[in-house]
Amino acid sequence: MSLIDIQKVEKYYGDNHILKGVDYSINAGQVKAIMGPSGSGKSTLLRLIALLEPVHSGKILFNGDLIAGNADGSRKKPESEKVLALRRRGIGMVFQKFNLFPHLSAVENVMCALTTVKGVDKKDAHEQSINMLERVGLGDRAMFFPSELSGGQQQRVAIARALVLAPRLMLFDEPTSALDPELVREVLKVMEKLAEDGMTMLVVTHEVGFARRVANEVSMFDQGQIVEALPPDQFFTNPAHERTKKFLEHVQ
């Protein structure tokens, strides 16, 4: 059974038709990558899976349970934020611009959700958070505030912040696009390690090398639809669609 199963999902912003009937699924332990031009709907898809925005129609299943949309795929009033907050716990999200909390130190950023959302006591949460920061190679930066960290370090703290809640799925929305070129590697290394450890991941990225090494499948997104989905070797060397070929000319 798929961990995430997306069926015929449609999304509009006003009159703007962002997602046009997307079907997509990820099995537990898989790493999938999505590529495509900006505005093609890749980030929107991630936000829908993270339950940060309601689907217009269609449905999303998480481990077989309906988490968004209606069972018959029709339109439905969005759930209350409280219900959604509970459901979001199983899914971790990493943003392009890190979105760390600037008023909290690195370790407090990681601890924050543990203490407020999961009710873990402070001492326990602190220990778990330090461990998690060590896992992303930032054990010595625990007391630093986001403004005192490089972009790469901030993104690694953001990864630790999501991981500490033990999500079953990690979503990455262009995690290295806002970074200086020499900081990209340290973030990708952490993500590769995570994939090796068996984490289920969905990564929107333009990092060809990363997708080749780590992903089980790469999809091409264009104008709210999946153009094609192929194993990375095939995707990068011999894509079937003209749209993919054209796009790859620009990223490779």
Partner: peptide
């Protein structure tokens, strides 16, 4: 306060009240 802040709080499973208290008010 940047929109991404509330977004990150919500993605971590915080309720709107928790987002307000822990993320928005301090900033």
């Amino acid at each position: 306060v940047d929109d991404g802040q509330a977004l990150a709080g919500r993605a971590l499973g915080m309720t709107p009240t928790q987002v307000m208290r822990k993320v928005v008010i301090p900033q």
